[in-house]
């Protein structure tokens, strides 16, 4: 950035961070590091990255319908093995968390009360993810292991 002359700081120095027990060592820590806020961000990032990599592969394997029915069925057949079936469970869990936590991020950004309830909302996100996964699992596992 250009070192353009800037307006001198007019405000008083910021107050020392509040020591809110968790996430702060000996009362000098931060409000963010090591708390749920940080871990939800890490998980959002990891799931987003994972989904993106999967999406590249998934568009590629679906594009095989353009080659021939035989080739597509052959390759997609590898998605129906137990190991891939479990991988799909992981991917579904990843989208569910990423999607629900995405809503939480949006609520924190756009609503007045969002920041105050961000921690409660994280547990709602975790709850919704678990409930949705519980609805998906029996169905999916019986399709994968059900001996079709």
């Amino acid at each position: 950035m250009a070192s353009a002359p800037t307006v001198p700081p007019t405000s008083a120095p910021p107050p020392p961070p509040r020591s809110s027990g968790r996430g702060s060592k000996k009362g000098l820590g931060t409000l963010y590091r090591g708390t749920e806020g940080m871990w939800s961000w890490v998980l959002h990032r990891v799931t987003g990255m994972l989904l993106f990599l999967f999406l590249l592969v998934h568009v590629l394997d679906t594009a095989l319908v353009r080659v021939s029915p035989e080739v597509y069925n052959e390759v997609i057949g590898t998605y129906k093995t137990p190991i891939m079936g479990l991988g799909e469970v992981g991917l579904v869990a990843a989208v569910l968390f990423h999607a629900f936590n995405g809503i939480r991020i949006i609520l924190v950004d756009f609503t007045a009360k969002g920041p105050r309830y961000q921690r409660v909302m994280l547990w709602v996100v975790v709850g919704l993810t678990v409930v949705a996964l519980a609805g998906f699992l029996p169905r999916h596992l019986s399709n994968v292991f059900g001996g079709h």
Binding site: T62, V65, P69, Y72, N73, I76, Y79, K80, G85, E88, V92, V95, F136, R139, H140, N143, V144, G146, H148
Partner: peptide, 21 residues
Amino acid sequence: HLFVNLMVGDGVAAIDFAFVA
């Protein structure tokens, strides 16, 4: 997308060329 492809009918087990077509 996930509901129609993985939950309805036989889910993954039913995905093949004919399904996509």
